[in-house]
Nucleic acid binder design. Structure first.
Lengths: 219, 219
DNA sequence: GCAAAAGTGTTACAGATACACCCATGG
DNA sequence: CCATGGGTGTATCTGTAACACTTTTGC
């Protein structure tokens, strides 16, 4: 391929490479994403994904880690690639290829509480970011499984919170008795001796994921 | 992001962008992919994916269409993005980001009969192409549905061929009676009045997909 | 008539669904 | 004592799995 490039440098063009993180969390029973407001043209005043360019010696995954640390702080965050975006004029200034990643964070680990937008009520977006977010939402919804749900929860959680995650991401309701039965039977979660505190109703038992939960799917 | 670039051009580096097509077909009850032999160093004599660079005004999808036409001829081929590869040194000469696509073709539309390798018996591969192929195989296997199966079959096909596609891609066996029942009940295929010819055994009825088959999943 | 693949129905089992009431706590 | 969310069992339905023999054709 490089040989093609050497033969005819006019045809091919080197391009900047960026990652665009779609950072999801669940808060207030809604799926939300992190956006920032643009302070410069083009698209001044609109919102954008908090993307970043790859450094010369970085993989896209390393760029994601660097950006996430910068945005949310230094703790481990789960993320996965879902699609790359290559329209030549997606940035009006200069060609940039963007690799889309979705990242999943537990609400409780978030310090900055603003900047989060309900995916059903997004503001005006810069570049092709609306399209990117739509695809990320579909990808998340289609890849909902226990590994994904786990990312939205703290280590110890009530089963009803796990159900809530499934309901919000999967955009559907589950029967509470059936959901609990299925989760317990699946062997992926286990009861602990911890109890929920500080709630003005019957406190729930807390569960945790068994260590071996990795890729178990859950419709 | 471009502002970051303008501030410090040393840190960021523009890169060539390529597509790498993993072209699958089913032949002889095996899943096969298209590879070509490298005639130059590096990796001279090893096999590689038939990748191509993005032209300055092309999306990755347009590059795929151009390359597929060049490799296999001018007919419509189904393909989908599955992952991008960004290790800085994946090509020892110069940085190239590669966007991996899997393409699916029906054996009968192939003219060039060599160049196809059983995915279970791959030759030595150049660059990171072994890794790319492994990921493409997993992706294909996990995304097996009727839309995918359709790509491996001609317009009119025996139900048993559809079963074969599912068995080869899904690496498992299906019970013939149950499989037929399920396919017919699903309403995605319909019987035609066409009959298989030129076989030395009982000829089968031929079926076709109904028009609306797009994204129906099938375990 | 034999080889080779096509085609066909019934029973058993497991997983999914539907459904309504009592419980524990804080205020 | 009341409001709030936590927690529980049974009966039915539906889709999947297991299973073996007859049919049609070419040679």
């Amino acid at each position: 391929m490089i040989d093609d490039f050497k033969k005819n440098k006019n045809l091919y063009e080197k391009s900047l490479i960026a990652v665009d993180p779609i950072i999801f969390t669940i808060s207030d029973k809604k799926l939300k994403i992190f956006l920032k407001k643009r302070e410069k043209d083009p698209f001044k005043g609109k919102y954008e994904l908090p993307g970043g360019l790859l450094l010369h010696d970085e993989t896209a995954e390393q760029t994601m880690e660097r950006k996430l640390k910068e945005l949310l702080g230094d703790f481990k965050i789960f993320f996965m690639q879902f699609q790359s975006f290559t329209k030549p004029n997606r940035d009006p200034r200069e060609r940039i290829i963007s690799i889309g990643f979705m990242a999943l964070v537990n609400e409780e680990s978030i310090e900055i509480k603003d900047s989060w937008f309900d995916v059903e009520k997004l503001p005006d977006l810069a570049f092709d970011h609306k399209e990117i977010i739509t695809l990320a939402k579909n990808h998340l919804c289609q890849h909902l499984n226990l590994m994904v749900a786990k990312q939205f929860l703290p280590e110890y959680f009530p089963l009803n919170k796990l159900q809530e995650v499934h309901e919000v991401v999967g955009k559907r309701k589950y029967d509470n008795r059936n959901f609990r039965k299925k989760m317990i039977q699946s062997g992926c979660v286990e009861e602990t001796d911890q109890i929920q505190k500080g709630c003005s109703h019957r406190p729930s038992k807390l569960y945790k994921f068994k260590a071996e939960v990795h890729e178990i799917s859950c419709k």
